[in-house]
Design a protein around this nucleic acid. Structure first.
Length: 590
DNA sequence: ACAGCTCCTG
DNA sequence: CAGGAGCTGT
């Protein structure tokens, strides 16, 4: 019972100190978020359940259409990315669908968007064969386009919309390359990681993200080469696999959507054929950046770090004031505003057959195909939906008849080129949230307990946010917090009942029981190295609960609120690597 | 009116 | 983890 000199001051000094230069309390933050949302939605209020259907249909249509067009037209101002934006604005659905059950993002089953080739043929096998052949050819063409777009990228990068205005770039890049979350022994981050020092908070985040593609200073040329090779191979394999499947599949499969159309998150993908997956792995190595750079011996966080939350902070407390730069520069055209690397990754993964829900690992193909998910919708041609499902303007329209969408001015340089030439880019933006997204969100929880919606948008670039998706993700974090606080309270009370009197005795270490619980909850499988900052926050939370309960404050119905407030101010920067849209995939490798 | 939060429930 | 009720702040 001798309180070891662990934390200097268990009181909310940490929080208070940070507050000095910090963001506003959660309430203000909420208001900002609200304004963010309300500022975006009205322009394209897309909340209705109908909208989802339309969106899916349109997405599919646009996708195929763009592919075809990409074949015929020169790599000109094809606007696949903007098409979505335009379409969105075309459907100002006003219905206030507040019932979430109708717009379950996670299980937006039948009309889930996905790769065109993923759409199993249901009827007219011969025709489908033809189309698949065509698609295959188109894919090859597109590969060329991609490559063309990739080549000039390095030089073109600058003038684009996301031009660098922060001198921190190199440093950021370095820190990114090393270990973003391995806070110790990382001199690069010292400036950025100062928890309360008046050092720059997270201002450099946005500029940085557009830099990732340039992380290969050694040879963009070599990268392109490798990329080309792998891309070629992977695409070929993927297409071949699909084609083969289609050609070999007996007619009985016509009623079997082979799971591709369903896209239920619960199904866990399974759209991908084995070749695609293996190829994906190869590409992954190329397209992704080093993760868990250093295991970082962290068995004992030790008093040192805990004892010096202010001196050697491991976690930069991120100000709530998320810069507007998080927002898409082009409200109506968020796609084009994304960093090129994200597109690249998305394209790659898309080419490799990542499922519509972005979740490609999981049950083997047979698993889903054995399941008879022969819903009326799924049995139809993916691109020919029943009229009931479509608004009049889209009823029996085929892709060919779809008007060319006006090219929205998007001088994003090569970004634009990518978006234009690679129709897959639009494919990838999905309305639903996949298990991968959930996993990623959980990992993000290690850094931020109260993410703003704008931050979420920034870190889930492959998600087409709308009201429902945003709410769902917010809800996720709410659930995360709930679990977190419950554990904290539980262990705090336990400590009290164990006779602990000094909150300083309470520390959350990596070998603590509470850590184990939390880790298994948020980081099942230990895919991620839990950042030290989380331990500090957890320690602080635990102590706050301990103190409150000890003081008998729990008699007050709202006794937790002060604690929430404190914790809400202690969010940290999230490693950029988590922003990558393909990051969750990497977690599925195991 | 709405977004976001907590709390409770299944 | 999702739904829903109820609360709060804007």
């Amino acid at each position: 019972m001798d309180p070891p000199p662990v934390l200097p001051s268990p009181q909310s000094h940490l929080a208070e100190t940070c507050m000095e230069r910090e963001r506003s309390p959660p309430t203000a933050e909420l208001s900002r978020d609200s304004s963010v949302l309300s500022g975006q939605l009205p322009s394209s209020s897309l909340t209705d359940a109908d909208w989802f259907g339309d969106e899916h249909i349109q997405a599919k249509r646009a996708r195929v259409e763009t592919i075809v067009r990409g074949m015929c037209l020169s790599p000109g101002p094809l606007v696949s990315g903007s098409s979505r934006a335009r379409e969105s604005s075309c459907y100002p659905e006003k219905a206030r669908e507040r019932k979430r059950k109708q717009s379950l993002p996670m299980h937006q089953g039948p009309l889930k968007s996905g790769p065109a080739w993923d759409r199993g043929p249901k009827k007219g096998g011969a025709r489908v064969k033809e189309q698949l052949h065509l698609l295959k050819q188109q894919l090859r063409h597109l590969q060329e386009h991609v490559l063309q777009a990739t080549e000039p990228r390095a030089p073109v990068q600058g003038p684009g919309g996301t031009q660098q205005r922060s001198p921190l770039r190199p440093k950021q890049r370095n820190s990114f390359l090393s270990s973003p979350w391995s806070t110790e022994s990382n001199p690069h981050q010292s400036s950025n990681k100062d928890i309360c020092g008046a050092v720059e908070p997270r201002t450099a985040e946005v500029p940085q993200q557009s830099e990732e593609p340039m992380l290969h200073p050694s040879g963009p040329r070599a990268l392109v080469e490798t990329l080309r090779k792998e891309l070629n191979r992977a695409v070929s394999q993927a297409v071949d696999a699909v084609l083969q499947q289609v050609l070999l599949d007996p007619p009985s499969h016509l009623t079997q959507p082979e799971g591709s159309c369903q896209g239920l998150a619960a199904e866990g993908g399974s759209q991908l054929s084995p070749p695609g997956r293996s190829a994906y792995k190869d590409l992954l190595a190329l397209a992704t950046l080093p993760r868990r750079v250093q295991p970082q011996a962290g068995v004992l966080l030790g008093k040192s770090s805990l004892a010096t939350p202010l001196d050697s902070p491991k976690c930069p407390v991120s100000p709530r004031a998320v810069p507007k730069s998080y927002q898409s520069p082009l409200p109506n055209c968020p796609l084009t505003a994304e960093p090129s690397h994200i597109w690249e990754n998305q394209i790659l993964s898309q080419l490799l057959g990542r499922g519509p829900d972005g979740h490609w690992s999981g049950s083997p193909p047979q698993a889903s195909s054995s399941q008879s998910q022969t819903s009326p919708e799924s049995a139809q041609q993916p691109w020919v939906l029943s009229q009931q499902q479509l608004p009049p303007s889209f009823a029996p329209v085929h892709l060919e008849s779809r008007p060319l969408l006006p090219a929205v001015k998007m001088e994003q340089g090569m970004l634009q080129g990518m978006a234009d030439m690679v129709p897959f880019s639009s494919i990838h933006i999905q309305e639903g949230l996949s298990p991968g997204h959930l996993k990623k969100a959980k990992l993000m929880f290690f850094f931020t307990r109260y993410p703003s919606s704008s931050l979420l948008k920034a870190y889930f670039p492959d998600v087409q946010f709308n009201r429902c998706i945003t709410s769902q993700m917010i809800k996720w974090f709410s659930n995360f917090r709930e679990f977190y606080y419950i554990q904290m309270e539980k262990y705090a009370r336990q400590a009290i009942s164990d006779g602990v009197t000094n909150p300083k005795m309470l520390t959350v270490l990596r070998d603590s029981e509470i850590f184990r619980v939390l880790n298994t909850h948020y980081n099942k499988g230990n895919d991620f190295e839990v950042p030290d900052c989380f331990l500090e926050i957890a320690t602080l939370t635990l102590q706050e609960f301990f103190r409150a309960v000890s003081a008998g404050k729990d008699s007050d119905p709202s006794w937790k609120k002060p604690i929430y407030k404190i914790i809400s101010k202690l969010d940290s920067d999230i490693p950029e690597i988590l922003k990558s849209s393909n990051y969750p995939q990497e977690l599925f490798r195991s």
